[in-house]
């Protein structure tokens, strides 16, 4: 078995070691978020007197907010601080001692978490469609596209996170920076409100940023709202952003390794 496959297996074992967390986040958090979002949007739809707003009915809006919480977790993979915490605590040293690239190691663990949440997302999507909609070959294909885009988005987000978390070599605490980056990704990615509700000019501007490709694009793929051309362009744009963040994080490490003291607590 190659080492990365073993890392994947080890991470899955770690995730499954905390069974309660699995069910609480999967069922509890998802149900609460759907309940809140559906209640709010029901009120908005009723007060507006419309049955469709910006391309969404209350049913498709509910599906949107079913995908958002688990999809966001899939996007953000491993917990915030997955690298900066190790730098702070000094356990980062081990990745410098072992004959491997810490970029590879961390990307693999990050994507393992993403894939795991992808499994939760697939279960939730299938369950919802079976209960409230229909699950035909079409939905199955859309689910596949959605998961694929979320995985690529997660890879992009991983590279962005590696870049931000490496800053902790110079600054001990980068928590606020990480929270801010996540908020920007979520807000301009459409996790709080679908992007079609944003003003037209803002929508045009944010398409020059990576944010809409991180959340909105995979959700739309999963809901079958994307044209094949949009999928192909979205795919290449995501890869482009991945490349940029990956390049930036590696350049940052080129500098950071001279400042790294390997101290930790």
């Amino acid at each position: 078995m190659r080492w990365w496959r073993f890392v994947v297996a080890s991470e899955i074992r770690k995730i499954l070691a905390f069974r309660a967390d699995f069910w609480v986040t999967f069922i509890g958090q998802t149900c609460i978020q759907i309940f809140i979002a559906r209640s709010l949007w029901l009120a908005i739809f009723e007060s507006s007197g419309k049955t469709m707003m910006e391309g969404y009915t209350i049913e498709t809006m509910t599906l949107y907010y079913l995908i958002v919480p688990i999809g966001s977790k899939m996007l953000t993979g491993e917990n915030m601080g997955f690298l900066s915490r190790e730098i702070y605590e000094g356990t980062f040293n081990r990745y410098l001692l072992y004959p491997l690239s810490f970029f590879h190691y961390k990307t693999i663990t990050f994507l393992t978490y993403s894939a795991f949440y992808g499994l939760q997302l697939a279960l939730a999507f299938i369950g919802y469609q079976l209960l409230f909609g229909q699950f035909t070959l079409n939905e199955f294909i859309h689910l596949g596209y959605g998961l694929l885009f979320f995985m690529i988005a997660s890879y992009t987000y991983c590279n962005l996170s590696l870049f931000i978390e490496l800053i902790s070599i110079w600054a001990d605490n980068i928590w606020s920076l990480m929270v801010m980056a996540r908020f920007l990704c979520f807000f301009f990615g459409g996790a709080y409100i679908p992007l079609s509700f944003f003003p037209g000019a803002l929508q045009a501007v944010i398409h020059f940023t990576p944010f809409p490709y991180l959340i909105s694009l995979p959700i739309n793929a999963m809901m079958g709202k994307l044209h094949p051309i949009e999928m192909i362009t979205g795919f290449f744009i995501l890869l482009g952003w991945s490349f940029i963040f990956s390049w930036l994080s590696r350049r940052l490490w080129d500098k950071g390794q001279y400042a790294y003291s390997g101290v930790g607590i």
């Binding site: 078995m1 190659r2 080492w3 496959r5 073993f6 890392v7 080890s10 074992r13 770690k14 070691a17 000094g90 356990t91 040293n93 081990r94 001692l97 072992y98 004959p99 491997l100 930790g264």
Partner: peptide, 28 residues
């Protein structure tokens, strides 16, 4: 090469030692 630091763990705390060793077997 190997570095052993008495004050810092390098194996994975959440895993049994044998799992860490198997991972190291693959890494090395």
């Amino acid at each position: 090469m190997s570095l052993i630091m008495g004050q810092k763990a390098q194996v994975w705390w959440d895993l049994p030692a044998l799992d860490s060793f198997l991972l190291l077997k693959e890494i090395y």
